[in-house]
Amino acid sequence: MTTPVVQARGIVKRYGHVTAIDHSDFELRPGEILAVIGDNGAGKSSIVKAICGATVPDEGEILIEGKPVRFSSPIEARDMGIEIVYQNLALSPALSIADNMFTGRELRKEGFMGKYLRLLDKPAMEKFARDKLTELGLMTVQSIKQPVETLSGGQRQGVAVARAAAFATKFIIMDEPTAALGVKESRKVLELIKDVRARGIPIVLISHNMPHVFEVADRIHIHRLGKRLCTIDPKDYTMSDAVAFMTGAKEPPEQDAA
């Protein structure tokens, strides 16, 4: 079997006497879309945060491509090629699309102007941003220089996904990418997610939307009471099965190879 992209074992995170993650496991395999579902408060965001460095777990180990890691901030995870699309997108509304794509990793001009005067290479960043958006079929925006606040919700989501896709080399975490969108815009974002997988980048998808999860996921990680209850193949179960596992109405299947 190939090495999983992420393998976490026995992760524990406590806040006072609340245990947010209770000896949970997590596994992401190469090239897959892994959906993470769970009831509110089950701790699905907590486990994902532990993997991307947003929280530091109290116990347990995390292996990225077989190598143990210990992130203390999402910036460290990002430096390793792990990108996160936050639910609130983390875009700066007044800045341009190109500025937003490069926030925190801007390109500087070569030579004296870049080295000593720290001049940004705006043409290069704009070209890169335009190419990436075109690749993902998102160049319906008029100009790469337009501020993000002038875009529709779906277009903003598109910019956030494009930013992640452009820089991710290991995997992408997406937190509720369709939650704030209408039917048609959600469709577009789902196509985008599949497109990113087709480029070979695995995705962790946190979502409440069962039809979307069942449409795009290769495997579904069901989180309950702070730990992984089971992982299921969406082809073998129905949405109501998944909801039943998630809420405890039904016993989970014997843990298979997943």
Binding site: I75, R78, Y86, N88, S92, P93, G104, L119, L120
Partner: peptide
Amino acid sequence: WYMLNKTAWGRHVYAIGDDIEAAELSGIR
């Protein structure tokens, strides 16, 4: 003006004023 508009530092200053949480999440210290 040059620092604010032509350097990464300047873009970060604007991003912080715009939405400090988004700026933090996108990797600005």
